[in-house]
Design a protein around this nucleic acid. Sequence first.
DNA 1: GTTCGGCGTTAGGGAACCGTTAGGACTTCG
DNA 2: CGAAGTCCTAACGGTTCCCTAACGCCGAAC
Lengths: 223, 223
Amino acid sequence: MRILIADDDPQMLRALRITLTARGYEVETAPDGKAALEVAIRTHPDIVVIDLGMPGLTGIEVIEALRGWTQIPVLVVSGRSESWDKVEALDAGADDYVTKPFSADELLARIRALSRRTPATTDDPVVTFGDVTVDLAARLVTRAGEHVRLTPTEWRLLEVLLRSHDKLVTRETLLTEVWGPQYTTDTGYLRLYLSQLRKKLEPEPSKPRYLLTEAGMGYRFTT
Amino acid sequence: MRILIADDDPQMLRALRITLTARGYEVETAPDGKAALEVAIRTHPDIVVIDLGMPGLTGIEVIEALRGWTQIPVLVVSGRSESWDKVEALDAGADDYVTKPFSADELLARIRALSRRTPATTDDPVVTFGDVTVDLAARLVTRAGEHVRLTPTEWRLLEVLLRSHDKLVTRETLLTEVWGPQYTTDTGYLRLYLSQLRKKLEPEPSKPRYLLTEAGMGYRFTT
DNA sequence: GTTCGGCGTTAGGGAACCGTTAGGACTTCG
DNA sequence: CGAAGTCCTAACGGTTCCCTAACGCCGAAC
């Protein structure tokens, strides 16, 4: 369980790191909003604890940026106790709001409450199948640890299929999403790029196991 | 969106009911823990707001009882601000803890934060009969866990029949929906494709149990 | 008993669809 | 200007699907 703590107060960072590490959490830290986003993208923490009063990007902006690509729980820590601040942070996408000063026990309990709720609801931006790992947020595809290069078109196509996990995606939908609404009859594109994706991602490209064809209808990604 | 409020203070109940109703929430109330559990079981609210200091069952016990059968979000409201109380409630299964007095805006924001996290209703409408399950949205048909492949025409035909559950669908309607308005006399198509569907879906294709023929009229899907 | 119409089933050919390869046009970047 | 990379076009066998045709079954009418 990995936690990202973003706070500009070195003393607070150190205290939290010690407390959380002692409880078995893996801790990443960031001293400002920009660093927090970078670390979040790089390490994909399971929970983010963020201080609102940081230099540079405001905490609110960081939350909104995170919400652009992930549903990971965000716990806000703030010295401001006005209800308006809480409303703003919660409506920006935060999941909880704790006012300083707070007890370590309370923070830990709230972290447990948040993490308890995640496995069921979160749509994990990382999809794995076979020896392939696709990080939808970071636009990163690896296969047996090796980086796989996808062209922009291949990526868009794969993204649409992965986001509709197990669902059939019609040719029309795929063409609209990837090439635009005016290409809904150029099914040759699909055959071409599906072939390339399979060559790069399937264990046996000639016998697809994850990127399936439903003749006459469309394609389906399944694990 | 339905909210259950459990509090022994009638004044608080009334205030919350007014506030929440004004925001478009449907409100159920309970004056004590026992009633809260009963109402929760009966009405299946989307969120529970519960006061810890109620007579009879303690709030903690109510939370634990709820968690025995549901993951619905629980927001605790309490006059006690000791961190130990918060830890106990959160670890019992509560999702959030607000200390009285609190502002209505904050409560509403926390309710929004909790409800935002439960679009877990991502389940598609599914029709099941025998050992067959049909997911209309995903266009997925499984039989005893195995994926059943349907051709586009078979799928359209099955879809029309399933959407008219238990109702007789005339040959003309089926032909129009599947093949188009100009084929309303080609009843041979129906015999052919119904046969194929039964072969793929019926336990005994020669003695249909779900895809029934109404001689001279049309077909009917029934469970 | 025979005839007849509606229904279910099977088989086969033509058409549409699919996967794949190769090569040229275009953009990007050094 | 050249090189690398990407996208599109074209064409090929192979596969799947749909429609046509024919036959057997069954119950109702004669």
